[in-house]
């Protein structure tokens, strides 16, 4: 099963490598990992996507909690939550195809954020599956470059992952 785990962690050098090191040392897989400081600059928030059966996920969350720098942790998959990923994609946009691409961007509620005579850069946010669908719809041979943030997640409802 795929799990998306949110982690509040001390914003200290080395904290990220402890998390990454834990996954490689114990043979857990990481599908994606994003990290940035929060509104409190002493804390960072990580969103980590991993896969495993129940026992493995239990071990992963316990081992993460055991890291001295991890302050709090929440497996978002345990409840209703919102997941978003951002992508910037550079597409070949020759004269014949510019309208078609613009229409596609509209359908997916994306934005064209850079234009040259031969390319567009499109910005798109949504669930990971939506980004996958866009890439597919844009045709492989027109894709110049793709950069994705990895998913971010937040729980629905009034509760927050806070100190």
């Amino acid at each position: 099963m795929r799990h998306i785990i949110s982690i509040l962690i001390e914003n200290e050098s080395g904290a990220l490598s402890r998390v990454a090191g834990l996954f490689s040392a114990r043979g857990y897989n990481i599908e994606s990992l994003t990290v940035a400081p929060t509104e409190d600059p002493t804390l960072s928030r990580m969103t980590l996507v991993t896969r495993g059966d129940e026992a493995i996920i239990e071990q992963i969350t316990k081992q993460l909690n055991k890291l001295v720098e991890v302050v709090k942790l929440l497996d978002l998959s345990d409840g209703p939550h919102i997941e978003r990923e951002m992508m910037m994609i550079k597409l070949k946009a020759d004269n014949g195809r510019r309208d078609e691409i613009a229409r596609l961007v509209d359908i997916f509620r994306g934005k064209v954020v850079d234009v040259t005579d031969s390319t567009f850069v499109v910005e798109l946010t949504g669930k990971s599956a939506k980004l996958d669908a866009f890439i597919k719809a844009a045709h492989e041979d027109s894709v110049v470059e793709v950069v994705r943030s990895g998913p971010l997640g937040i729980a629905r409802g009034s509760k927050g992952l806070k100190l």
Partner: peptide, 11 residues
């Protein structure tokens, strides 16, 4: 004392 020792190898 260590939660991660529990149900690690044996449920």
């Amino acid at each position: 004392i260590d939660p991660s020792s529990i149900s690690k190898n044996v449920r």
